[in-house]
Design a protein around this nucleic acid. Structure first.
Lengths: 213, 213
DNA sequence: TTTTGTTCCGAACATACGTACTCATTTCCT
DNA sequence: AGGAAATGAGTACGTATGTTCGGAACAAAA
């Protein structure tokens, strides 16, 4: 199959986009506007080429009678990642994260997420935030926090840290120096907490936040 | 959702069948022939009912602008929604959202998102937050804000509002009473702003926030 | 019965949309 | 360079297709 010109690629991509957004294919004039093409005849011309090259099929005389053939851009991209929602996170409650082997068996809840949120991180899980206690971390009630299990966080990482004495979990930026850990809220107007390293345990590293209103 | 008449059921089934066979929805006359209906107006009449009852959505004046809702949510469940990232949002910069017809022109960026973030909202787009100015809304630098175009926000909605005199865009909870708009930060420790309704223009409603660290 | 509401019919209308045709502009090849 | 081929632009035409409208057929009330 021949290489497509930029314009043809643009048209093909636009059609795939359009079908995803609406449930029906675009008209010639939709494509014209969407791809900033000056004339419908140019669209028709390139559509014929796309058809000849096997990228799509067209039903003659039928409005929007376009059928994409190779669904490379659509169905192939289904490598979405299933992330378990292991429970809630709130101040005053220890996390109690079960071992990763049991994650998908006693499946509480799952969310499927696009890869760009996970990247190459392994064993990402999610927690539902309860209450306003994470507000310093710019995390609201009901948010979904994506976390990656980690034992040795790097300086600057946002972590879920539990203060051992208070049994309190917070989301803060983590800095360690000379055995003293500084927990810095994401909202810099708030004050940081300094505690000895042995007084906190890091439960994981925050890799994302999802808020759905 | 009400029970469908035999004719309506027949029409609905035919549409699903048709989309299965071709990749595009049927025209009114396709349905007329496929269901042995004597007039296009009867098809239109029943399509309106199907739309009112929530079985499908129609785009006015658009050929084959039919979108099935029921089966769609099941079979399309694996299908992720492509949301265009239309630009940046920052205090001091008006949004300048282009018309939806031009969204998917080759230019911009896109993110694929799972359906639960979009729900049934239409024309959702995303903006990349630049700077710390949205911190009151629990939105950090680099966050992706999902927005839905809206003209009349409801009280309590989080909206992107532009203060006309200051040319400043903020994300705040919107409350209107007696022509006075109160913009309430999500972080309740911050102070609210009260302005006359005519001094602000609402650019859209925030439906989600995505933070990827 | 009359009334009222729903469904259906047939035709006509307005336009959304595919296609064709002519002429420019660019790209390619020798 | 020069001519051919490919690509693009602009316009016009025909029809595919959504929409409207007056009225008939039918059933359920009143």
């Amino acid at each position: 199959m021949k290489k497509l010109s930029p314009r043809q690629q643009s048209i093909f991509d636009f059609i795939a986009q359009f079908i995803q957004n609406h449930q029906y294919p675009p008209s010639v004039r939709d494509i014209q506007n969407g791809c900033n093409i000056s004339s419908t005849s140019v669209v028709d011309y390139n559509l014929r080429i796309l058809q000849r090259e096997g990228y799509l099929r067209r039903e003659a005389e039928v409005s929007r009678g376009i059928e994409l053939l190779q669904e490379t851009s659509l169905s192939q991209n289904r490598n979405y990642i299933n992330v378990p929602v292991l429970g809630n996170i709130a101040a005053g409650e220890p996390l109690g994260i079960p071992p990763s082997e049991t994650w998908h068996s006693n499946s509480i809840d799952n969310v499927e997420l696009p890869p760009f949120l996970i990247q190459d991180k392994k064993e990402v899980f999610a927690l539902r935030v309860k209450g306003e206690s994470m507000i310093d971390a710019l995390v609201a009630d009901g948010d979904l926090v994506l976390m990656e299990p980690i034992d040795n966080p790097n300086n600057g990482d946002m972590v879920a840290a539990m203060l051992k004495d208070k049994e309190e979990v917070t989301l803060k930026h983590f800095y360690i120096q000379d055995g003293t850990v500084t927990l810095q809220p994401a909202n810099s107007r708030m004050e940081a907490i300094k505690v000895p390293a042995e007084n906190i345990s890091v439960q994981g590293r925050v890799v994302g936040v999802i808020r759905s209103i």
